[in-house]
């Protein structure tokens, strides 16, 4: 088995296991509490509106917005890690069909693995400091690297047609 295939298959399996462990831990320890917090904040906002206390109603909406912002990114982390991992494993099995030299294939594999790790990391770092430039730049760079590498793989497959 070539080095590029090993990298994709083993890297993909490791990423899938990490993604699953992350999903399991999140479901066990945080997801129910987060969903309760979101529902509670929304309900509180309208209860406060019923009591004509608008500043507190707006505060509750802000809490809802912030909690949902975190929740969406936690779920994205779990699903993107596993999704990208599966893609890497499938590509790993078919990588010999990419019509290029092993050197190019190795670069493509490295780019796929690096992008698949960095993109979800950038997404989750956005919850630590919302609005900061570094997490967003990391997510954009990671997704761009994966997309470009995949375009290279698609080109390699198409050349074999």
């Amino acid at each position: 088995m070539s080095g590029s295939r090993k990298l994709l298959i083993f890297g993909g399996l490791a990423l899938a296991a990490i993604g699953m462990c992350d999903g399991l831990a999140y479901a066990l320890f945080w997801e129910h509490q987060t969903l309760d917090a979101m529902g509670g904040a929304l309900s509180t906002a309208f209860v406060e509106a019923a009591q004509r206390n608008l500043p507190r109603a707006h505060g509750a909406i802000d809490i809802y917005g912030r909690t949902k912002y975190d929740y969406v990114r936690q779920v994205d982390l779990h699903s993107h890690w596993i999704g990208l991992a599966m893609l890497m494993i499938v590509l790993g099995v078919a990588f010999d069909s990419v019509n290029s030299g092993e050197g190019t294939r190795r670069w493509l594999a490295v780019a796929l693995l690096a992008g698949s790790v960095l993109f979800p990391c950038g997404v989750i770092l956005e919850t630590v400091n919302p609005g900061a430039w570094f997490p967003s730049a990391l997510a954009v760079a990671g997704s761009a690297v994966v997309t470009l590498a995949l375009a290279g793989v698609a080109w390699g497959f198409a050349r074999a047609l």
Binding site: L42, A45, F46, E48, A49, A50, R52, L54, A57, H58, I61, D62, Y64, G65, K68, Y69, V72
Partner: peptide, 17 residues
């Protein structure tokens, strides 16, 4: 879209009041 969601909900609380 995330911003729009909180904007609509904030407006809804104002309109309810």
């Amino acid at each position: 879209e995330e911003k729009q969601e909180t904007t609509i909900l904030t407006a809804l609380t104002d309109q309810s009041a």
